[in-house]
Design a protein around this nucleic acid. Structure first.
Lengths: 160, 160
DNA sequence: ACGGGTAAAAGAATAATATTCAAAATATTA
DNA sequence: TAATATTTTGAATATTATTCTTTTACCCGT
């Protein structure tokens, strides 16, 4: 079940991705104009990029402050997963406040990124959500004071 | 110049954000239908959300594998910033492969998230980019073996 | 409770975009 | 070089975006 995906993107695809990465709501007509192509061709390309899972999704970046989500934290979690599984990782992924779960090298661990309203919210989460996961051995929390940059933009090649 | 921003969102705004967070390319007509409102009203709302900086941007999530960006790492950076500045943070933010830069509590440090093609790319980056920043005292790198979850979705309140 | 005023929503008309599809152009392969 | 497959175009139609006016809802002070 581990089909090797074949991407194979050309320069035009890269340009589309570049535009989409800047503003995912750019319409096909605008992209078409910018690339000097017909809108229908762009539509085809974009559809294909979605099908090939090159574009995974379109999301709106919402200001955390607007939802009063003021505290960002990273938590290293040492856990004892049943061999060959990532049971803990999957449980962590289910927690809504947890934005990222990474299985990291070294200490049988995970690194998670968590957004809560405040310190109290973080404590709550650790007690009520992490606390419920028995396989967790220990945690180490790092509090973010200020975020200088936070994007998911990838570096898109200029030549093929 | 530190104007306190007043958000003040109602339940309809939350619903719009919820939809946009799932798929930022959902068109106004669809949102309107889903919320049982006129498209023009939705347009107004969305514009306002953008103006108020509640919605910061729309981005396409691109599959890192498709661009051969196979390696994800987190690097803790201990640095000696000139007092009251985040000079190092800003320099780090300029590096394209660096997706996130967080100023963290404790050890005068930063935590950055970096995406490179492979280990060689990471070494390159540390040597050529981080190496050029003199204020950096030391680094500690954590390699991600596998990512279980990676989103930026926020928890949107259900009641006001 | 009653206006006055403001903000938001609806509705209708127009502009623009999305989408479909057949034909033409391009690439690909044998 | 011919044959085939893929991609692009261009035109027609369906759908959506946007504008603007009218109507409705909401807020405040009296």
């Amino acid at each position: 079940m581990m089909a090797k995906l074949e991407f194979s993107l050309d320069q035009i695809d890269y340009q589309i991705l570049r535009i989409m990465q800047e503003n995912a709501r750019t319409n096909n007509a605008d992209i078409a104009r910018e690339l000097g192509m017909a809108p229908s061709a762009i539509l085809e390309r974009v559809k294909k990029l979605e099908q090939k899972q090159v574009i995974l999704q379109y999301n709106a970046k919402i200001n955390p402050d607007a939802l009063d989500q003021k505290l960002l934290s990273f938590i290293f979690i040492k856990a004892q997963d049943p061999i060959g599984t990532q049971k803990v990782g999957l449980l962590l992924a289910k927690i809504p406040e947890v934005q990222e779960v990474h299985d990291i090298a070294g200490d049988d661990g995970y690194l998670i990124k968590v957004r809560t309203n405040d310190a109290a919210g973080l404590v709550d989460l650790m007690r009520n959500s992490l606390g419920k996961i028995e396989e967790i051995i220990s945690t180490r929390t790092t509090i973010v004071l200020e975020t200088v940059k936070e994007e998911q933009k990838l570096v898109i090649p200029t030549e093929d």
